[in-house]
């Protein structure tokens, strides 16, 4: 893959003495959905948080190796974290809209990054909400507190707020685990829609979800990348015994 959006090269990650990721090599293609699967504690969330350097917030972590996003090693000391996180947005397990109005949730990004004037905010809000399918439902109540929305709407809003800062990689850390099956299906629908313009990396516990939405999948176990390939191949003809055990439910 010459045009990989994210390239992980020999990545080792330590929490204190505990090694959470072991020599991980991975290339994530542009404008596709890549799923990271594996049992709890296998390092999949840790890996995801390496892509926008959210692990920096945790004390006592150590990282070796390289993570290259758009041709730039993001662990290089000269990297501008503000710029990186603007480009690589993250959706969390629990929807976490800010305790502000719906409008202000979307306008927050543009206003902290100063790339749009106040006058442009309504247009950005409309465009972002339309992209996640919330505009028709919410256009008359933009001043309401975002916390009054349903879980699914909150999660969509969290995605919309990343689109507003023109992120182009979306990291999703079990984005549906706090949602019911119907909401989950609708968020998956949205992900398929967003794939056309964005590179999406999703961490999920839910194997069916990985099979439904992703085009490539990586199986992790105890910090090691066991197998990585097209989702269809990985789920129908896994090369490794461990992968087969996990996806068929004999383990994990």
């Amino acid at each position: 893959m010459a045009d990989a959006k994210i390239k992980v090269k020999a990545l080792n990650f330590y929490y204190g003495k505990f090694q959470a990721l072991k020599n991980v090599k991975l290339e994530i293609p542009e404008r596709e959905i890549t799923a990271i699967i594996g049992p709890s504690g296998c390092g999949k969330s840790t890996l995801l948080r390496c892509f926008n350097r959210m692990n920096d917030l945790v004390s006592g972590v150590r990282i070796e190796g390289e993570v290259v996003v758009d041709g730039e090693d993001i662990y290089c000391p000269s990297v501008d974290l503000v710029h990186l996180r603007k480009k690589v947005g993250m959706v969390f397990q629990r929807p976490n809209p800010f305790p502000l109005s719906i409008f202000d949730n979307i306008a927050y990004g543009p206003s902290i990054h100063h790339f749009a004037s106040r006058k442009q905010f309504p247009e950005i809000v409309e465009r972002s909400l339309k992209a996640v399918g919330l505009w028709n439902d919410l256009k008359d109540r933009l001043r309401d507190l975002a916390l009054t929305l349903s879980g699914e709407q909150q999660q969509r809003l969290c995605i919309a707020r990343l689109l507003a800062v023109e992120a182009d990689i979306l990291l999703m850390d079990e984005p549906c685990s706090a949602l019911d099956p119907i909401a989950t299906e609708r968020i998956e629908e949205l992900m398929r829609e967003l794939r056309k313009k964005y590179t999406i990396v999703i961490v999920t516990h839910n194997m069916q979800q990985a099979a439904r939405v992703s085009s490539r999948a990586a199986y992790f176990y105890l910090g090691e990348l066991i197998e990585y390939g097209s989702t269809q191949r990985l789920f129908t003809r896994p090369l490794r015994r461990e992968t087969e055990d996990y996806i068929t439910g004999r383990f994990g």
Partner: peptide
């Protein structure tokens, strides 16, 4: 989650404190 969400969007620590943490 409020702080993480804000930092993950590229906000600086002070922006996060002033715009998100203090109002909440």
């Amino acid at each position: 989650g409020y702080r993480e969400g804000s930092i993950a969007m590229g906000a600086t620590q002070w922006q996060t404190i002033r715009r998100i943490v203090l109002p909440s």
